[in-house]
């Protein structure tokens, strides 16, 4: 068996990024993800990379855009209020088809909110977040090992589709320590003939999100983006089912909320109540079809979230019979309670 180390989520994500070949990191500190820039500051110089603490979130995401245009594997990380500030750059990168990885280790909002973990940025992450008709891939790890593994995947997906990829964790995930087997590099390589690397011996290349001419250029760009999104929807959905087959009630949850829901399922089963858990690991693309199939013959579907019901809207969209879909959530950094989930599920009996 491979050596396990006890590692904090934030540290594990940063180390995994370096394993994935991330050579540049630009960020601005904010709790609860400060271990990420601290880790990169220590480790990136050791591997010949560049760490830079920017003067603001806007500057950081713009530096990410520059490094990405130059062909580098680049990452930034932040927490909720900082994520709002980065939306301009993310929208520009989506329009310019630039790959990058952005981690949002969410805390409670709105505004500066608090520093406790939350899942209230689901809409922002899965609906684009900035202006324009765009999507970003959104990965939702549920434990420290998965956070590291999905970070490796995030870089590959970003390069494969030339798209910003968001790792959407919550403060609890960033702060928790769990045993970790360091992930291996995927071994995949991606040519970047579009990168701005100096026009010696070739024609100059052009990377921009602004398309004024010819007349239909912007619609053409949008159609290309939508085609990419269609391919991603078809091929990149990841989800995990736990004891769904014979379940009467299926819980739907991601991240730390899914850990708590998982515990509730185990306890419910001990009491003879058949519950199951469906856990999306990609929030965009959302596993709508899988959810629809699994829940079709179930009595009840309960979304559990650390928000007022954001993923719940996707669950409602996916389920044919909206009447059997219920919601339980805690707000502003509070954690869902196993006891309260159990009580709710028992009320369906």
């Amino acid at each position: 068996m491979e050596e396990k180390i006890l590692m904090k989520g934030n540290d594990a994500m940063a180390e995994a990024a370096i394993i994935a070949g991330c050579s540049h990191y630009f960020g601005y500190p904010i709790t609860p993800q400060n271990e990420v820039p601290a880790y990169f500051a220590k480790r990136l110089p050791q591997v010949g990379g560049t760490f830079l603490q920017a003067e603001s979130e806007l500057a950081a995401i713009s530096m990410v855009m520059g490094a990405s245009a130059g062909g580098a594997r680049v990452m930034t990380s932040t927490s909720s209020p900082g994520m709002s500030l980065k939306q301009e750059g993310i929208s520009y990168m989506a329009g310019a088809k630039l790959p990058c990885v952005i981690a949002n280790i969410m805390r409670g909002g709105p505004g500066l909110g608090g520093i406790a973990g939350s899942q209230a940025d689901y809409f922002q992450a899965t609906r684009g977040g900035g202006n324009g008709d765009y999507q970003t891939i959104v990965l939702a790890p549920g434990n420290v090992q998965e956070l590291a593994d999905l970070t490796i995947l995030a870089f590959d997906l970003a390069d494969k589709y030339r798209i910003p990829v968001i790792i959407l964790g919550d403060g609890y995930l960033g702060q928790m320590s769990e045993p970790l087997v360091l992930p291996k590099p995927s071994g995949k390589t991606f040519e970047k003939p579009w990168a701005i690397t100096g026009a010696k011996d070739r024609d100059p290349q052009f990377i921009a999100s602004m398309r004024l001419t010819p007349e239909n250029a912007l619609e053409q760009l949008n159609l290309e983006l939508q085609e990419t999104y269609r391919v991603i929807r078809e091929n990149e959905v990841i989800t995990e089912c736990y004891q769904c087959d014979d379940a009467d009630t299926v819980l739907v949850a991601y991240g730390t909320a899914a850990r708590i829901a998982n515990k509730a399922v185990i306890k419910l089963r001990e009491q003879g109540i058949n519950a199951g858990l469906l856990r999306p690991k990609t929030l965009w693309p959302f596993p709508s079809e899988i959810l629809r199939k699994i829940t079709n013959d179930k009595k009840k579907v309960l979304t559990v979230e650390m928000s007022a019901g954001q993923m719940h809207e996707d669950v409602l969209l996916a389920c044919d019979d909206k009447n059997k879909v219920d919601f339980y959530g805690r707000l502003g950094g509070a954690l869902p309670k196993v006891d309260e989930i159990i009580e709710r599920v028992k009320s369906y009996e």
Binding site: K4, L6, T31, P32, I115, A116, G171, Y172, Q175, M176, S177, E178, P179
Partner: peptide, 22 residues
């Protein structure tokens, strides 16, 4: 953290969450 590390080294599943903040 020491409890988690020690138990992990003896083959147990472990997790550790700090109360974090100011």
């Amino acid at each position: 953290k020491m409890l988690a590390v020690a138990a992990m080294r003896q083959g147990k599943h472990v997790s550790h969450i700090p109360s974090y903040g100011a």
